[in-house]
């Protein structure tokens, strides 16, 4: 679900576009440190992964299903700067090639999903990692907590934007309560999927998960003398 054209008024759209441009600019600088060298192919494939991941439906029961937002998952797996770039490109491609999300609302969508969702998620992830024991097993737990917080925080940011530049006045407390209520439930689902997915990545290739990389110890090379000479 992306914000379409005309959902927020022109000044708000312009302001969020400015915020988005600034944030993406910072991410462009920061991503150089996260990706080894000019590894655009890698970031491109991660962008496809985020896009494809959003297409995988998780059944909730009673015929309904939900899908992943993936901002926290991407931040934990490839680092927040690269995740910002990947989500920005996903939103750009969705707006231009799929007409999903308005062209004039691109700044709003990038601000919400590539900046707020990614960075709120990553900040909570780092905090949770600092509080949990230093072990690979705590990475999925921290990612789940981060995903759970990131979704309602993004919803709250959306409410803030609507309060500033919405098309029609809605009782704000009702809007906030409804949005938070729904998105806390969605956050629970996001947390579960993020926990399971990060868990399965960390179990197979912990070296690929950015958020687990500092926990890996490179075993010292040991030269042993053969025992059977």
């Amino acid at each position: 679900m992306h914000v379409p054209d005309g959902f927020l008024d022109a000044p708000t759209s312009l302001a969020t576009a400015g915020v988005a441009a600034l944030g993406v600019g910072v991410a462009l600088r920061g991503a150089r440190r996260e990706l080894s060298d000019a590894a655009a192919p890698l970031a491109g494939l991660v962008a496809v992964f985020v896009f494809a991941g959003q297409l995988l439906n998780f059944p909730v029961g009673a015929g309904t299903s939900g899908h992943l937002v993936g901002a926290t998952l991407a931040a934990v797996l490839v680092g927040p700067f690269t995740a910002t770039l990947c989500l920005t490109v996903v939103l750009l491609v969705q707006a231009l090639a799929f007409a999903d999300g308005g062209v004039s609302a691109l700044g709003t969508n990038v601000t919400l999903m590539a900046l707020v969702a990614v960075w709120a998620g990553y900040a909570v992830f780092r905090l949770a990692r600092a509080l949990l024991p230093r072990a690979v097993a705590s990475v999925p737990v921290a990612a789940a907590i981060a995903a759970f917080v990131s979704v309602p925080v993004t919803a709250l940011a959306f409410c803030g934007l609507y309060a500033v530049g919405g098309q029609a006045p809605i009782d704000l407390s009702t809007l906030v309560v409804t949005m938070l209520g729904w998105h806390t439930a969605i956050g629970l689902g996001e947390a579960a999927i993020t926990f399971l997915t990060v868990g399965s990545v960390v179990a197979a290739r912990p070296d690929l998960a950015y958020g687990a990389r500092d926990l890996l110890t490179t075993p010292e090379l040991e030269i042993r003398t053969a025992a059977w000479t």
Binding site: L42, F49, G53, L196, S200, V201
Partner: peptide, 15 residues
């Protein structure tokens, strides 16, 4: 979720 995890590893390795 295991599918998603495998998809990430395969995408990353392909990258």
């Amino acid at each position: 979720a295991a599918t998603l995890g495998a998809l990430f590893i395969r995408s990353y390795e392909r990258g």
